[in-house]
Design a protein around this nucleic acid. Sequence first.
DNA 1: TCTTTTGTTATATCCATAATATAACAACTG
DNA 2: CAGTTGTTATATTATGGATATAACAAAAGA
Lengths: 122, 122
Amino acid sequence: MFIEIDFNSEEAFYIQLRNQIIIGIATNQFQEGDTLPSVRQLADSVGINMHTVNKAYSVLKQEGFIRLDRRKGAVIALDANKLHAMEELQENLRVVLARAVCKGVAEEEVHQMVSEIFREMS
Amino acid sequence: MFIEIDFNSEEAFYIQLRNQIIIGIATNQFQEGDTLPSVRQLADSVGINMHTVNKAYSVLKQEGFIRLDRRKGAVIALDANKLHAMEELQENLRVVLARAVCKGVAEEEVHQMVSEIFREMS
DNA sequence: TCTTTTGTTATATCCATAATATAACAACTG
DNA sequence: CAGTTGTTATATTATGGATATAACAAAAGA
């Protein structure tokens, strides 16, 4: 899987890493039990500091996407708290969809886009 | 329309204001041509600084949701750049849906939630 | 065993951003 | 004229993002 940093983005580096890894899990490029690169290794390969990668991993652990093993490192391990995920999804969608609606995006267009994204991820 | 600040939220005050106003527009609580409270007035009523409200308004203008009129103040005025809105929507959905998918949320559940949010907003 | 790599923790610094506090000015309102 | 408006400027404080070293215990490989 290719992970890279957009140094011109306004998004924090550790957020970019987190999002890319989450998308990697959703697209099955990372699977349950797979190990992520070591913090030093990933930091080196994308050109940022070790602690920034460490922060991304810490957030991913705190949010229930990986497990930090003393011997194996960062291991993909989902604690699927679906109730919590649904609440988070709803709050996120409320803002994201409101923005789109204001700009004239229709409901059918959103449904189509959702379907397309699921197609990409399956 | 009720605007309020969650002082315990991790979200920046000006982002909270921005999102609530956008949701207000999407739900027709604010309509094209309506004026928002003056920066001093809104700052006073929600208990934050004038400049924080000013920043929220500046962002809303920059993102094409309001127009800043010398005499009327902040006026709801949408420049509906739909192409841009669709691109932004897609990028946002990619991350938001990936998070949900990892936690076991199914495509139908997303479609249902989208429909429900559109029902709330119409 | 020795060496290397690993995760982890602890400081420290630098910079940008968020939020606040005054202040001032031009323009509009009553 | 007095009050309110948007706007701009400056300054301060606090927080968060990113980096730089450094150190240590545990695991892995030779």
